[in-house]
Design a protein around this nucleic acid. Structure first.
Lengths: 339, 339
DNA sequence: GTGAAAGCGCTAACAC
DNA sequence: GTGTTAGCGCTTTCAC
């Protein structure tokens, strides 16, 4: 049934060592011997067993990626980008979904670190660094993606959160908006915290009245923006900043259905999902903040492989910057869309 | 360094067999012994090595899913659904992306079947069954998803393609549309073939003029619908049927930018991505066809696990039906959206 | 330039 | 009720 390396060795009339070295190019083998080996391999239809190999070598050639929401285009695109990089480097990608649930995340980390993958990419939903840290076996290669912790023990690839939000507030204030609301993601996440704090600082710096009620939090899953929006509208905002792509789409739709016109009745600025065609319809009515998702995925892939090679290189943070796209009232011609 | 089962056995003063049986509940162990074993495990921080275990048992507890486009919401949602099912059953999910490229698909199949996964879910981009079949080791558990082959050697989970398109044409014809265009996906795919053939048959049955020029094919990747749309508009269609979600969004946007009004200047029917908030804005202007993506993912998960248990159960096809949502001119209140 | 053989960590007969 | 032990298929050291 299953054909093994010794079947090949036997047929080729050589030792298993020679077969192994031939297929792995790991020591000199005369070309005649090589020839015999390849012949035997072809004849038997031999394929080395990945499972035995990784057991023996300890290398799985696989990395795990723990994400909060696979179906979310932001992470979907990132997964694509990571997979693309990894598969080009001979690695496989195992996906695990947490649905922003810390227990699920814990469970996935436990399972994946138990000899299944060589390293782990994590967009963590945890707020408790200690709990997170306790789950990671010492020396296990980990790279944090999109979200980080205050304790900088692990390397991270994130996106600038402060600057675009600060700028949003300033631009809105510059237009004369006085009551600027903001819809953030899960309060416990580093990304949310950074954005909210940018908002607060900018509000203060611009001399606008501070009002805790103008800060609302969604959960970045489907259908979480509506409540926030209603609350903000009740408090008669002139402007709203939305911190996440899925919630942005929902906000636009709800405004639409309520007959509230963007750029006229209310100003909108939002983080937006990369390349989503949806926003092309609105880029003349709202400022958009586009995160470099593909670069994020690429960098994450690079870092985790580097980390797998040298697990004890010092941790460092990489912060990519988002594109801020102020709207212009003249509609873009799609003939030269700016990407 | 690494703590193994025999370290545990030694510390607990029992044999490795007992340790193994204790953690796997695989034969009777007295509670005192169990206690000692658990104690030792806790003390040493032992975790069984997944790699050694799967090498030994031949079970990887992992399935592979080969998809054409991860970032596409249709597949993203499906991946989420599959992952959800699998992880609930103790399995992991390896994702591989083909970008609708047959060589990439071939490569992924080769790698994954070489001892990495217990079974494979494939939304194949191949048209040549022979080529596909040659890649699958005899007896290897495979379930085709969303796309199938004429030769029914492998089990498949698909979605009804014929019925919704046939119905679309009939409804459009019923409204008096004469020139109905269609934008299909990649011509080589079974899903595309079925849809186009439904279109052709309905056109004939409804007594509408047949015109090959009204059939256009996109590639279902970003930015492929525009050319098709332009060509159809040039041929002055009254109505357009779009066979895929991404292309649907693009079509809507292009119509919008051209100032062509849906339901007024032109009728539109389209396959639409499940739950995408985007379409909520248009469900009073176009008929939509919603595929049961989550059920698809669930069924795929169920089937592949069943298949892994009994690899030689007879192949069978499962066809799920899409929801056809005719539009009503009174806008839906989102308070009771029909999902 | 090639072979012999020792394991990697675990499971599962088989034995008592 | 528990222990002994033979491998799973491969890589790699040591030897010649």
């Amino acid at each position: 049934m299953k054909v093994t390396i010794s079947d090949v060795a036997k047929l080729a009339g050589v030792s298993t060592a020679t077969v192994s070295h031939t297929i792995n190019n790991t020591r000199y083998v005369s070309s005649e011997t090589k020839e015999k080996v390849y012949q035997a391999i072809a004849q038997l239809g031999y394929t080395p067993d990945a499972s035995a190999r990784s057991f023996r070598t300890g290398k799985k050639k696989t990395v795990g990626f723990i994400v909060p929401d696979i179906a979310n285009k932001f992470f979907g695109t990132m997964i694509e980008s990571v997979e693309n990089f990894l598969s080009a480097h001979g690695y496989h990608l195992i996906i695990a979904n947490t649905k922003e649930d810390m227990d699920r995340e814990e469970n996935h980390i436990r399972l994946l670190t138990a000899g299944l993958v060589d390293g782990l990419l994590i967009a963590s939903t945890m707020d408790d660094f200690q709990r997170f840290d306790d789950l990671i076996p010492p020396g296990f290669p980990v790279v944090l993606v999109d979200r980080t912790f205050e304790t900088k023990k692990y390397p991270s690839i994130c996106v600038s959160n402060f600057q675009p939000i600060y700028r949003s507030v300033c631009r809105l204030a510059g237009k004369g908006d006085q009551r600027i609301g903001i819809i953030g993601g899960l309060p416990r996440l580093s990304s949310t915290k950074e954005r909210i704090s940018a908002y607060q600082q900018a509000i203060a710096d611009c001399g606008l009245p501070e009002d805790e009620q103008l800060i609302r939090y969604g959960d970045s899953m489907e259908n979480s923006a509506r409540v926030c929006l209603d609350e903000l509208l009740e408090r008669s905002c002139d402007a709203i900043i939305v911190c996440q792509g899925l919630m942005a789409s929902e906000t636009i739709i709800y405004l639409h259905k309520k007959g509230i016109q963007m750029a006229k009745d209310i100003d909108l600025v939002s983080f937006v999902d990369y390349e989503s065609t949806f926003y092309q319809l609105y880029n003349n009515q709202m400022d958009t903040i586009v995160q470099p998702v593909e670069e994020l995925g690429l960098a994450a892939g690079e870092q985790i492989l580097r980390r797998i090679e040298k697990p004890d290189a010092p941790a460092f943070e990489k912060v990519l910057t988002s594109a801020y796209r102020p709207y212009s009232t003249q509609a873009h011609s799609w003939a030269h869309s700016d990407r």
